[in-house]
Amino acid sequence: MTVVAPEHAMTPVYEFPDSLTSVPTHYCPGCTHGIAHRLIAEVIDELAAKERTIGVASVGCSVFACRYFDVDFGQAPHGRAPAMATGIKRVAPEALVFTYQGDGDLASIGAAEILHAAVRGENITVFFINNAIYGMTGGQMAPTTLVGQKTASSPAGRSLVGQGAPLRVSELLAQVDGAAFVVRRSLHDVVQIRRAKKAIRRAFEVQEQGLGFSMVELLSSCPTNWGLKPDAALDFIRDEMVPAFPLGDFKVPEAETAGAAGAGTADSSAAGADAAGSAVAGRARRG
């Protein structure tokens, strides 16, 4: 770090997280992968879990996540991170094990692995970065690409005919009994980022409590492959992605749905600011 702290009268209230390495990320300017990394690292710091955290990186832009987190890391084949994390967690149950996967990795090639990790109630935490596109390979259609969204492999825009509608993974996994905590958050503004961090913390706590599979889906930006400036990309999340992928809590532990004080409930009421999000969250809770 080349930063010089200001005058001695000042005390730090926010500093570079311990659980990140100083390696500069390869992410494009304004890409919210960096925010997701930062939040996860901040929560690992808060839980004082750096020395017992084991991450599993995936394939895609997040392939180098292993270089950016200052914790033990494995690097799985495309889509297989939940299987690799299963192997790790089963023989290191005291470790805090998480995967970090994009939408191509998790929702397309790794659809079987994520589904069955949830079915087994595998006690791992999954961070699912949904930016509706394949970033690393240059902007091809993902399973979460929006209808009509133009990509390098859907130049006329994703069509319902032949390409289908975007896959809503959180809603899907919430149907699985083994899933203990499944929520969707967004990284498009400061309020949403703070909610995302609370959810990340809760997901790790669910794992620490041995409650089963936990996943936080994070709506994220890809300014480069969307062809938008960083700030316009955040607007795209808010205006285009959130309506297609409503924010909310799709599955939270029983006690939290019944009571009013649980972290999950607090999160979902916060997400209620988003009309669509609260409607789906409400349905999920009642269901």
Binding site: T11, G34, I35, I193
Partner: peptide, 21 residues
Amino acid sequence: TGCQLCATMCPEAAIAVYRAV
């Protein structure tokens, strides 16, 4: 004011925030 909004938004964790003691 050291409100941290900028740091919350920064994808690079490049901003550190300080407040007067």
